[in-house]
Simulated scan of single mutants.
Amino acid sequence: MAPSSSSFSTTLSVFLLVLVGMASAQLSSTYYNTSCPNVLSTIKSAVNSAVANERRMGASLLRLHFHDCFVNGCDASILLDDTSTFTGEKTAKPNNGSVRGFEVIDTIKSKVESICPGVVSCADIVAIAARDSVVALGGQSWTVQLGRRDSTTASLSTANSDIPAPSLNLSGLISAFSKKGFTAKEMVALSGSHTIGQARCTNFRARIYNETNIDQSFASSLKSNCPSTGSDNNLSPLDAISQTTFDNAYYKNLVREKGLLHSDQQLYSGGSTDSQVTTYSTSSSTFLTDFANAMVKMGNLSPLTGTSGQIRTNCRKTN
């Protein structure tokens, strides 16, 4: 039996609405061109100032984006403070006493609100700040897709389960990234973020005292700052060669068995990713390009768009 004209019209209308919904859900590099044309320059200036004040902040802002996106998508959930009725992600094991840069995001949000109130999401600010931090430290730029909205919820349990731990073996790393849609090659590229920043003694103590696939002089040099007991929060650079420059030295370190974390050295330890590490250690341009491409992909992890979520006025709390 042929469909009536009215049922056909209804079906067509629903189909068109679905298409419009799909289109509105796409991120776009030009999202704020009309609504907030100065947002990119405003954020870049604030990030450059923060990084000039403390070079380590570049690594912290990059990590903030990563730890946000790996927990239910890039939705600024990591920025939410705990309240009497709400537990956020800041006290999760991978974040507690470790993730930082919240005050810089607050400053940026304040500047952006002053020029475009209620327009730019905290999630987009975090994504842009991550890119600008890499560029400020000498890395390659990429086009940040925009139009994310902010979550009204967070997940302590997902933060604890989904953010890759520094104790993971290669298979665990590949699995953790695969769950988010990344290939092993993209995982190796994203791990290159450890060419900047620092790690706490508690996260590499077991490696420097117990593992054999580590340069012994490198291990010895770390022990004075990371004794076998105590001093858990003492910091050491993830890349001892150029800890505040975004380059391929991280991979050169791995080839020399000078990876700081267990998870770092797992990328070059007789496994399937050895050749990728070797390639990046000898070709900075290949690494920087692959990293930039992988960051675009990470920024597209389950964003809230359209009418989902909200544009938070204060990144630390829901409206």
Rank of each mutant, 00 (worst) to 15 (best):
D162E: 15
S157H: 09
A123W: 08
L260T: 09
V277H: 05
S175K: 09
I214N: 03
F218Y: 15
K258Q: 13
L190A: 08
C201W: 10
N169G: 05
D239K: 03
M298Y: 06
L304T: 04
K297A: 09
Q310T: 11
L79Q: 11
S236L: 02
V126C: 08
C201Q: 07
D215E: 09
L156Q: 13
T30R: 01
G139V: 02
S193N: 09
C116A: 09
D239G: 02
L301N: 02
S178A: 14
M295V: 00
S285C: 08
V296H: 12
T153R: 08
C122Y: 01
T107D: 04
T10I: 13
F246S: 05
K317T: 10
I163N: 04
Q310S: 11
A52N: 15
L168T: 01
V126A: 10
S4R: 11
V39I: 15
C116R: 11
M187R: 09
L146W: 02
S285V: 03
Y280T: 04
T273S: 10
A25H: 11
T307D: 00
A129S: 15
M187Q: 02
C122M: 11
C69H: 08
T279E: 07
W142G: 02
K90Y: 11
S98Y: 15
G270E: 00
S263C: 05
V99E: 06
S272F: 02
L16C: 04
R256L: 13
T83Q: 08
S302P: 02
N48E: 13
L16T: 01
P164L: 12
L19V: 15
Y251A: 00
V120I: 05
N53M: 09
K297E: 14
A92G: 10
V99I: 11
L173K: 03
Q145L: 13
A249T: 05
N314V: 14
L79G: 06
Q276M: 07
M1I: 09
N233Y: 06
Y209R: 00
V99Q: 05
I214S: 01
G88I: 05
C201Y: 10
S228P: 00
E113V: 06
L137C: 09
V112G: 09
L80Y: 02
G309L: 03
Q265P: 07
A127E: 05
T244Q: 12
G181H: 09
T202A: 10
T229S: 12
R316P: 04
N72E: 14
S13E: 00
V134W: 05
R149Y: 06
K179A: 12
Q310P: 07
N253M: 11
T152E: 07
G309F: 00
L238D: 01
C315P: 15
R148G: 02
N293S: 13
L235Y: 05
S275E: 03
N96E: 12
I208F: 03
T87M: 13
D162R: 14
L40D: 10
S228M: 13
S114D: 10
D239W: 04
A249K: 15
T282G: 08
S110P: 00
S191D: 01
V126R: 14
S77N: 06
Q216T: 08
A165L: 12
D150C: 09
S236T: 04
P303C: 04
G230N: 03
S7W: 08
S284H: 08
I128M: 15
T278P: 00
S171H: 03
S5T: 11
S121C: 12
S236R: 11
G88T: 14
V135W: 14
V134Y: 04
D290I: 00
D75F: 00
R55Q: 12
